[in-house]
Nucleic acid binder design. Structure first.
Length: 286
DNA sequence: CGTGTTTGACCGGCGC
DNA sequence: GCGCCGGTCAAACACG
């Protein structure tokens, strides 16, 4: 999936002060970043007084703080957009789910009945799939509460691991070869909190083995854990409390954490900031 | 040494 | 009741 096509990665950050020291003209058409940064570097060669230095550091601190604040705001917006998009997707899936439910299933009786129960209980929210083979031995009330959704993740060729990077922490507790798929199925528990009931199953698609099918089960308990791994199991009747500031903050922190750990994101961020600096330098000059 | 993974054993539901 | 099957447990192991 190409996320770059979804999100405009150009950052409107407050980085203008970075270029304050760079007064030397730069040939934007021909010079690269190394050339461009050279005047800034040279300026640091001249020794400022300690007062000036402190002022510069304070200014830098303020600038970084402002960047941090803007990034946080951006993440909040992204989070909200994500939730809105997910809602639309769920609506769409629920419409399609109606059709799927009418189709007869070759699965075992308990599984098909269970799926129907879930579809009803979840307002058609589960990602309906003819290959859905969820089985549950949970008490009735848990079945009603639990949500099941699927995610399809394409992996690189040669990647034999059953790891789906979804930004959450999982602990593998089992692996099993199932009857209808020669590829082993891995079982994960949410490791965010010991009491978190969310589980995940990951198995390669029997049709396309480069695709991992991740099945999310259950939902985080609202009291004991804020949101450990409930990635997409909410529905209209029981939306996650993303509207509370605490959860908003937690979600933002989670996303920031997972993003900053991603080298691709940091590289993109650096590129975006560099590009922005480059642009602003040019626009100031011209 | 703490944490996460692996893997065989075990358990419970279901069909026959 | 028995066997099959999916799911879970927990001891052993690997790793940083």
């Amino acid at each position: 999936m190409d996320y770059s096509s979804w999100v405009d990665t150009s950052l409107d950050l407050n980085i203008s002060s970075i270029r304050v020291k760079s007064e030397a003209p730069v040939d934007a058409g021909r010079s690269g970043m190394a050339k461009e940064l050279k005047p800034t570097f040279m300026d640091f060669q001249t020794k400022p007084s300690s007062k000036e230095e402190t002022g510069a550091l304070v200014e830098e601190l303020n600038r970084v703080g402002e960047e941090n604040r803007k990034l946080t705001e951006m993440l909040t917006v992204i989070c909200e957009s994500y939730n809105a998009l997910r809602g639309q997707l769920m609506d769409y899936m629920s419409k399609n789910g109606e059709k799927d439910r009418l189709a007869p299933s070759k699965k075992r009786k308990s599984e098909s009945s269970h799926n129907n129960n879930n579809n009803i209980a979840m307002n058609g929210n589960s990602e309906s799939s003819s290959t859905d083979e969820e089985s549950s031995k949970k008490p009735r009330e848990e079945i009603i509460k639990d949500k099941i959704s699927k995610a399809y993740v394409r992996t690189e060729a040669g990647d034999t691991s059953l790891t789906v990077k979804d930004g959450y922490q999982w602990r593998k507790y089992g692996q099993k070869v199932t009857r209808d798929n020669p590829c082993p199925r891995a079982y994960f528990k949410c490791s965010f909190a010991p009491s978190c009931p969310v589980k995940k199953k990951v198995q390669r698609s029997i049709d396309d083995q480069s695709v991992l099918v991740a099945t999310y089960e259950g939902r985080a308990q609202s009291s004991s854990s804020v949101n450990g791994g409930n990635t997409s199991n909410d529905d209209k009747s029981s939306k996650p409390r993303t509207d509370t500031p605490e959860v908003q903050k937690f979600l933002v922190e989670q996303m920031a954490s997972s993003l900053t750990k991603d080298p691709n994101f940091t590289a993109a961020l650096v590129a975006a900031i560099s590009g922005r600096m480059f642009q602003q330098n040019n626009s100031e000059k011209w």
